[in-house]
Amino acid sequence: MTAPATLDRSGIAARIPHAGGMCLLDRLEAWDAQSIHCTTTTHADPANPMRTASGLLAPCAIEFAAQAMALHGGLLATGDGPPAAGYLASTRNVRLHRARFDDAPAPLHLHAERLSGDAQQVLYAFRVLDADGRPVADGRAVVVLNTPLPDAAP
């Protein structure tokens, strides 16, 4: 079975571990083996679960980009089983271009490019842009794959 060229919100939610309001992506616009482009308007939703009394603070843009990375990994997965579990391990060279972004012109454009990786980890560059092409956040992120978390202590 081949992966779709585009997806709506329900198709995205079926391919990433984020459910309900925590699925922050509305649409897969395009993707290939090295990159992905998604859009969303969930940043403007007053019920966004990441929103504080001060609005949706700029560091939350990293989670939006990370979900695009998770979707990219799911689209690249081969076989019938679920995609490898991934965890955001680190971010580097992150630039936040505004203090909050719930008031940014919609839709947001989320771009992630796979720079390198293997079966254990992947390095992505990411950009989050508003509808006018102005940057919200950009940087690099390392996603660690197939690494089970230890069970919580009783």
Score class of each variant (00 low, 15 high):
A89E: 00
L129W: 09
D80I: 11
T147S: 09
A77R: 10
D8W: 05
H72T: 02
T6S: 06
M22E: 04
L28H: 06
T41H: 08
L149M: 15
E63A: 15
R100M: 01
A30K: 03
A33E: 15
A70Y: 03
G117I: 07
D8Q: 02
G86W: 08
A85G: 15
G79N: 08
Y124H: 12
T6E: 10
I12K: 07
T147W: 05
T78E: 15
G11M: 05
A141V: 06
A84T: 10
Q121W: 13
A141H: 04
L145M: 14
L129G: 04
T2F: 06
R134M: 13
C60T: 12
A30W: 00
R15Q: 00
D80L: 12
M50P: 05
Y87S: 07
G21N: 02
P148F: 05
Q67A: 08
L115G: 11
G74N: 11
L7N: 00
D45I: 04
H43T: 02
D102I: 13
R27V: 02
R92W: 00
D103A: 14
D130N: 10
A65I: 10
N93L: 14
G81K: 11
A125L: 09
A47P: 11
T147L: 09
P82N: 01
T91K: 04
A68F: 07
A112K: 08
A77D: 11
R134T: 09
L71C: 04
G81I: 12
P49Q: 15
L129I: 07
R140P: 14
P154T: 12
A19M: 06
N93I: 11
A66W: 08
Y87I: 10
W31I: 03
L25Q: 03
Q121S: 15
A13C: 01
D132K: 14
D26H: 01
P83Q: 05
L56Y: 05
P148I: 08
